[in-house]
């Protein structure tokens, strides 16, 4: 097993609020890691440290270590723009830009200096294909992305993230705003993407974690209670709190 993120003794505070306590975990490459736990336990906070989106919140303080492919990303002077290009993110609420489908996908590559028209065309097509939405959208490339359905918008956002050729994909409850059909399309897609990408997905839905993930991390009140193979977590959890949570006794 190859580790993509190595998290050691990681702590995070929002001002005085100690939101993540001494987290230790090794996130595996080309696997799907699900983060579960009740609302407010720190799942989003954790996933946002992996691409340094927490830098945008001035009150955040960090300690400990997270190494991405061996490079320290906590409190270190790395190029965050390059990190975010490598570690892409899909948000809970689909957030396509108010521009055409094409321009949405081409946004990232253009940002990273690709101007050549035919190269951009290839990237747009490949990204849409990889996000399993090319056939639906191939005649609508010039239309505004805001006219798409919620599920299409979310897959467009996945395609947009893929267009910068990331290495890791972070997804924060990507299906919580979607209907069941769109949700299962995205789940299929995520399973498919595992071949080429390492995926960390926050989910509120335990069935979803069971269906798609290889590893599951259970967070509770800022603690990482248990982190193990998904089968193990859902069949023989070693912590009583995990068991209570997955059997629906709270949360």
């Amino acid at each position: 097993m190859e580790t993509i993120f190595d998290v050691e003794n990681f702590n995070l505070w929002y001002g005085d609020n100690h939101a993540l306590h001494n987290i230790n975990m090794k996130i595996e490459k080309n696997a799907i890691t699900a983060l579960i736990g009740p609302s407010g336990c720190g799942k989003s906070t954790f996933i946002k440290t992996l691409n340094r989106m927490n830098d945008l919140i001035p009150s955040v303080k960090l300690s400990g270590s997270i190494r991405y492919r061996g490079q320290e990303i906590v409190n270190s002077d790395i190029n965050v723009y390059n990190l975010r290009k490598e570690v892409g993110m899909v948000f809970q609420k689909p957030n396509p830009f108010p521009m055409s489908v094409y321009d949405n996908i081409a946004y990232g590559p253009r940002t990273h200096g690709i101007k050549n028209k035919s190269q951009l065309n290839d990237i747009v097509e490949k990204s849409l294909r990889d996000a399993a939405i090319f056939d639906e959208l191939k005649d609508r490339l010039k239309d505004s992305a805001l006219g798409l359905s919620g599920g299409q918008q979310q897959r467009l956002c996945i395609a947009r993230a893929l267009a910068v050729k990331p290495d890791v994909l972070l997804m924060d409850e990507p299906t919580s705003a979607l209907d069941p059909i769109s949700t299962s399309k995205i789940e299929e897609l995520v399973l498919d993407l595992k071949k080429e990408y390492s995926i960390v997905i926050v989910t509120h839905n335990m069935q979803q974690a069971v269906r798609i993930s290889d590893y599951t991390a259970f967070f509770l009140l800022g603690d990482l209670v248990e982190f193990d193979k998904t089968d193990k977590i859902f069949s023989k959890p070693s912590d009583k709190r995990t068991e209570d949570y997955i059997t629906g006794r709270f949360g």
Binding site: Y81, K85, F91, F97, T111, C157, V164
Partner: peptide
């Protein structure tokens, strides 16, 4: 969300 979407793609 637009701003976050752009920053998450590595734009400055």
């Amino acid at each position: 969300e637009y701003e976050l979407g752009s920053l998450a793609l590595g734009a400055n």
